[in-house]
Design a protein around this nucleic acid. Structure first.
Length: 583
RNA sequence: GCGCCCGUAGCUCAAUUGGAUAGAGCAUCUGACUACGAAUCAGAAGGUUGGAGGUUCGAUUCCUCCCGGGCGCACCA
């Protein structure tokens, strides 16, 4: 089912063709939603630019095209305005039909499956084994999960990848410490109640006890040498760490599972091949004993070509090597058409160099799209990176606890009649939703200031505001005793300006999904949902539903409510946020 | 030193990728609950988009320079 934007684009493209001839058969009419109702619902912006090229007057050109537009069944009118804009006013019948079709399309709400379907790898979250997740993992986890959900909803074949930090010299000391704590290589489970303590204790011993440090270094060699007992201990640490990640992901409503784990260790045996490949491609060079590549277009602080080290002078590999190996795996084995990396903005240059190297080595052809999705820092009220009052790292689990606690307090104030169980369930959805929404609703490239009061506010662009709009709609159905599954889809008939505005906004969902999938900017979806909820609240004020003047109006408004509820629910779901029936 | 990112109303943020009069929320002020959740709505006020040039029919958006802030620039990830 083509959406409004596509229908209008098609109509205007035809009109341009008809007015100007075959050489303009594929001119983009530049259809955009109008930002002011007096300019219609949509506008075509092509005329000014095209007139310039053709040496004509923009308004004359626009008028020629307007005369060729087939308005039938779509627009009430199309008019030339201003310097040469074409304002398009959608017809009520068209809005009714489109809204009815979206309502009938239960799962997709009028969002057409993406063509062609692509295999998309989304790399996000990436915490470190043997450490608790902290605030530094929040943004990658939340943004990445949203992007994966959106691409999947479009119909793409999404492969989530959790690139865990599960390899490196620190595992020697961790494993030695595990042994000191009574771990047994021949058992399958080693329980850790506090991952951070495990790491810190190991580190303390490593720094203080030379004998222990010596054992740790030997243990690293054993680990890299595939010693069986050492491998078993390492695996126990893996699964114990993953237990923690799983708990955090579940509470956050993040879709990552153990199946998505492809940590650094997974690529360990593929690293020599990366070097051989670079050698074969003629890109590998020796520099002060290290093996490096010089991706085109990068300079260092002396103005010389910037090297990217892929093998240290002691023979060890670095994260550039692992990232190259991972990209090759994703392209060759996972058959990725597109790879999305969700990491903070500080790694922009690193990924630019990785991408350049992949292209130069012909490991990534032009048809593989490589996207780095950079994001800014979470700041405290002092505008510096978010820390605890003592200056320490903020644990993610503490953030989740406090989000729910604060949400519970707010819910208690607003709705004291709820049972404790109801209250807790609602506080979970609201608290976690607020936390995630605060992260998703800002342009991701910018830093943002973490502020509990603002994210949990029930007004403004927040998760609780959106969840509340949904709750209000459910409340209408409850109060009216109406079963939303038995609604007449064809009942929608917009008359009041508020009904009309709501319908126009509802029908913009497909275009918004497309924009998010292309730009990988979740805040666009947030902005849309906020505008939708605002449009609903205006409708709600001006258009009584249950006590509408007549039955057909009531049915129409109920159907609009239902479509709004489903759109909010779906939109929030794509953000990884849950709705509740009451709050 | 070079490179990347950011700078929009008092505060927190948008601006459909170059389109019309730069929009929201908070805070301030004025209205609206004997109609479905006032957890809302209607309205007022608030701007030299850090500054100066340039490109363009049109610039918050693109280019150059400058000023502020953040982050990168080889053996950590």
């Amino acid at each position: 089912m083509p959406d409004v934007l596509h229908i209008l684009t098609e109509k205007l493209t035809r009109a341009i063709h008809a007015a100007l001839g075959d050489q303009h058969a594929h001119t983009d009419p530049q259809i955009r939603p109008s930002n002011n109702p007096k300019f219609g619902d949509y506008q075509a912006n092509f005329a000014m630019g095209l007139a310039k090229k053709l040496g004509q007057k923009p308004r004359d050109l626009a008028q020629q095209v307007v005369e060729k537009i087939d308005l039938e069944n779509v627009c009430d009118k199309a008019t030339v305005a201003g310097p040469g804009f074409i304002n398009l006013h959608l017809g009520a019948d068209f809005l009714n039909e489109q809204a009815a079709a979206a309502l009938a399309d239960t799962d997709r709400l009028g969002v057409a499956p993406a063509q062609p379907k692509q295999r998309v790898v989304v790399d996000y979250s990436g915490p470190n084994v043997a450490k608790e997740m902290h605030v530094g993992h929040l943004r990658s986890t939340v943004i990445g999960d949203c992007i994966a959900r959106v691409l999947e909803f479009q119909g793409h074949d999404v492969k989530r990848q959790n690139h865990l930090g599960d390899w490196g010299t620190q595992f020697g000391m961790l494993i030695e410490h595990m042994l000191d704590c009574g771990a047994d290589p021949r058992q399958t489970s080693f329980e850790v109640s506090d991952l951070n303590a495990l790491y810190q204790d190991a580190k303390k011993k490593f720094d203080a006890a030379p004998a222990f440090a010596d054992r740790a270094r030997k243990r690293v060699v054993l680990l890299q040498g595939r010693d069986v007992d050492t491998g078993n201990l390492w695996a126990q640490l893996q699964s114990e760490s993953y237990r923690h990640f799983r708990d955090v992901y579940r509470r956050m409503n993040v879709l990552l599972t153990e199946d998505d784990v492809r940590g650094e260790s997974f690529y360990n045996d593929k690293l020599p091949t990366v070097l051989e490949g670079l050698q074969k491609a003629g890109l590998l060079q020796d520099s002060q004993g290290a093996q490096v590549v010089f991706p085109a277009g990068f300079k260092n602080r002396d103005g010389d070509p910037q090297a990217m080290i892929v093998q240290k002078s002691d023979g060890g590999y670095l994260y550039a090597t692992t990232d190259l190996a991972a990209a090759r795996y994703r392209i060759d084995e996972l058959h990725a058409d597109r790879i999305v990396y969700v990491t903070d903005a500080r790694q922009s240059q690193h990924f630019a160099m990785i991408f350049a190297t992949l292209r130069q080595a012909h490991w990534a052809s032009d048809r593989v799209r490589l996207d780095h999705v950079p994001f800014g820092t979470v700041l405290g009220k002092d505008n510096k990176p978010f820390k605890t009052r003592q200056g320490g790292t903020v644990k993610l689990i503490d953030l989740l606890d406090e989000a729910e606690k604060r949400a519970a307090t707010v819910i208690d104030q607003k709705n004291p009649d709820l049972s404790a169980d109801q209250r807790d369930a609602i506080a979970h959805a609201v608290g976690i939703g607020a936390l995630k929404y605060a992260d998703l609703s800002n342009d991701r490239i910018k830093d943002y200031v973490f502020d509990w009061d603002r994210m949990l506010a029930f007004d403004g662009n927040t998760a609780p505001y959106l969840q509340n709009a949904y709750v209000r709609i459910r409340s209408i159905f409850r109060k009216g005793g109406v079963d939303s599954s038995t609604l007449d889809h064809g009942a929608i008939s917009v008359r009041d300006p508020a009904e009309r505005a709501l319908a126009v906004k509802l029908l913009q969902l497909p275009a918004v999904i497309d924009a998010v999938a292309d730009s990988l900017e979740p805040h666009r979806l947030c902005t849309y949902l906020y505008e939708l909820a605002s449009a609903f609240h205006q409708f709600y004020e001006h258009c009584p539903v249950l006590i509408a003047p007549d039955e057909s109006t009531r049915d129409s408004r109920l159907a609009l409510c239902e479509l709004t509820a489903r759109t909010l629910q779906r939109g929030l779901d794509l953000l990884g946020i849950q709705v509740i029936e009451q709050m």
